[in-house]
Computed example of a mutant assay.
Amino acid sequence: MASASEPAAAPQTPTTVTDITGREVTVNLPVRRILLGEGRQLYLLASLEPQNPLASIVAWRNDLIEADPATYAQYLEAYPELAKLPAFPGQENGLIDIESTIVQKPDVVLLNLEAMRANEDAKYIEKLAELKIPVLYIDFRHYPLKNTEPTIRLLGKILGREARAEEIIKFRHQAMARVTDVIARAKPERPKVFIERIGGYTDDCCLSFGAENFGKYVELAGGHNLGSDFLPSTFGQVNPEQVVASNPDHVIVTSANWQAYVPGGHWIPLGPGADPDELQKKLEWFTTRGAYTGIAALKTRNFHGIWHQFYNSPYGFFAVQQMAKWFHPDLFADLDPDATFAEYHRRFLPIPYKPGYAVSLADKD
């Protein structure tokens, strides 16, 4: 019961909403207790609730802590209570911790699309439904151009932040249009681009993207994604000999600080506040990979690194703008992706902007 000095919380109303898979789910709105099936869902939650993004979170998976330590450190500095938030381990496509979920008694559980199969097979959704705990699926990863905006609108609705959700969507539209409108008018020749996915996380070569996610970002930025020629789905692996034969004009490595997973690995520690000199040094190693022997990008030094988490966040507009500058520097001489992302931080996030999300060997020469 609220004290005399505290306003009573708004009453919750059972409301039917539709998640990213088309499931109709009844949720008590506005939600007050959210369990994040992936910690990186904070990227959007904080955009919608910048005054106190932790107010409604009761537990989360520990992936933000491990996969994006620099961003975690920023939020921890701003909100020291984050260290006490219950965290549970797990995999992107794995089961949620159902015991932790039940204990926290959330109003809703947010799961990413790739976890759907595992949780359906284990009947976790039905088990939680029996306890009146609804589950909503969201997606930034598999079909980001299709599903990111519906995901923003869905979270805006359940939080009672519909107007702010539309502001975020409008910002994304405008940031993307600064590239796509120019490409549509100029119709430049499209360079061949190879994306090496999670560079340095494993020694395998060459993990890449098909026609979705970063593959789609390449096309929007005025390039031709080579992975789309060989991979039938969003994620897959291209034979190194095929990469050499395809002779890419640009190689883009998606990477991040993965010290928690691969101590001392070849990953590039991209992210907020990263040291530019260290990024250049770590990117240089990728020019030695056999898959890139003699390719055009090697001769022109068009090797680039970009923050891997753009593949799983509402921030994909930065990746599109940055790649457009790499592919067509003359067309986009006045475009400043860092300024765009800094503006997003000022308008929508409770943490300051720190550059460090991209690096290029071409910039060094």
Rank of each mutant, 00 (worst) to 15 (best):
G273P: 13
Q91M: 14
A9R: 14
H328S: 08
I102P: 06
V182R: 10
T254K: 04
S3Q: 10
P50A: 03
L279N: 06
L85A: 06
A2W: 09
V253K: 04
L335F: 11
D97T: 09
M1H: 12
V243M: 00
A67N: 11
N28S: 14
P86G: 04
V244D: 00
P272C: 05
R153M: 10
N225E: 02
L48P: 00
P89V: 08
I65G: 05
K299T: 09
N119F: 07
K132Y: 10
A291E: 04
E6K: 13
S5M: 11
V179F: 04
D19E: 09
R161M: 15
A55F: 09
N93V: 13
C206H: 02
R117D: 15
I252K: 02
E126Q: 15
P134W: 07
M1W: 12
N213K: 08
K282H: 10
K325G: 05
P14W: 06
A59W: 11
S233Y: 12
E162N: 12
V320K: 08
E77V: 11
R161G: 03
A333C: 08
I198H: 10
H173V: 13
N247I: 06
A83D: 13
V193Q: 00
E6C: 15
G215N: 08
P314C: 01
I98S: 06
L54Y: 02
A8I: 14
K282V: 06
G199W: 04
L44Q: 02
D336G: 06
L207N: 09
E189M: 13
Y261K: 10
V320M: 08
L335K: 02
V58Q: 06
V179S: 04
Q41M: 15
K216I: 01
E162H: 07
F303P: 07
L283S: 05
F327Y: 14
R178K: 15
H250I: 15
V238C: 00
S5L: 13
E77Y: 08
Q242G: 11
Q91D: 11
